[in-house]
């Protein structure tokens, strides 16, 4: 199956997805951002909201990347990029950091996904075959954060499905995904099953169902995921 031109035309950009995820982050939350699109979520959370970004390598209160030449190379995030420490930040070692994560003190982990299952299983650390990827902090974050937001493109490049009845890739954690943000849909995982809450402008619930293996519940009022010019994203 080839990719569908209708879906492709409607698909959000990574910046659009990051902007939508940011709207789901409540004021004052402690949030861990994974690499890729999740990292960009920070660009869309206004400083006045009191959100504290934590990185598992030992910082609560990570701020934006410093200007070139002003990097402190002892201060990085889990993607190994230099960061700043916001006023009120704290620093700690790995045992404390993962106690914070495993102990349920981190409100939200935003993680990239490779596959998500009908009951919210997350696969994001490797693909079958030797010598791919790494576990890193993903299993602890997916298991320990109070809420897990996952993000991925809805389809593989070859059109293959990623929202499945059962993940075929090795799992990161079972039944943990609370909200899934793809380039064409926002889906919330409920007791009854995956609930389609929003679809990309120009698409219908049927369009999303067609490229999703599990039967999707449909919200009474379906919202629209909108696109904005990429220039609107600060600091990207």
């Amino acid at each position: 199956m080839n990719s569908d031109p209708k879906l492709e035309a409607a698909a959000l950009t990574p910046g659009d997805i990051a902007r939508r995820i940011a709207r789901e982050i409540p004021p004052g939350a402690a949030v861990n951002l994974g690499i890729g699109v999740p990292t960009r979520v920070a660009n869309h959370v206004e400083p006045g909201r009191g959100v504290m970004f934590m990185a598992e390598n030992g910082i609560l209160g990570a701020g934006p990347r410093p200007a070139p030449g002003e990097e402190d190379w002892d201060l990085i995030n889990a993607s190994r990029e230099p960061v700043t420490a916001v006023p009120g930040a704290s620093l700690f070692g790995h045992a404390d950091s993962f106690a914070m994560i495993r102990g349920g003190h981190v409100d939200i982990a935003v993680l990239g996904a490779l596959q998500v299952s009908a009951r919210g299983d997350l696969a994001n650390w490797t693909v079958p075959g030797a010598g791919k990827g790494g576990i890193g902090g993903a299993m602890d974050l997916a298991t320990g954060a109070r809420q897990v937001f996952a993000t991925m493109t809805h389809l593989m490049k070859d059109g293959g499905l990623k929202l499945l009845e059962e993940c075929s890739y090795p799992l990161t954690a079972s039944g943990v995904v609370g909200k899934l943000f793809t380039d064409i849909a926002f889906i919330e995982f409920t007791e009854e099953g995956p609930l389609l809450r929003e679809v990309a402008a120009g698409l219908t619930a049927e369009d999303i169902q067609r490229v999703s293996e599990p039967r999707l519940l449909v919200a009474g009022t379906i919202g629209t995921l909108t696109r904005e010019p990429e220039a609107a994203e600060p600091g990207a």
Partner: peptide
């Protein structure tokens, strides 16, 4: 032997 990061930290702790 590849293990979760928090599990490694806690096993060492």
């Amino acid at each position: 032997e590849q293990i979760p990061q928090g599990t490694m930290a806690e096993r060492i702790r």
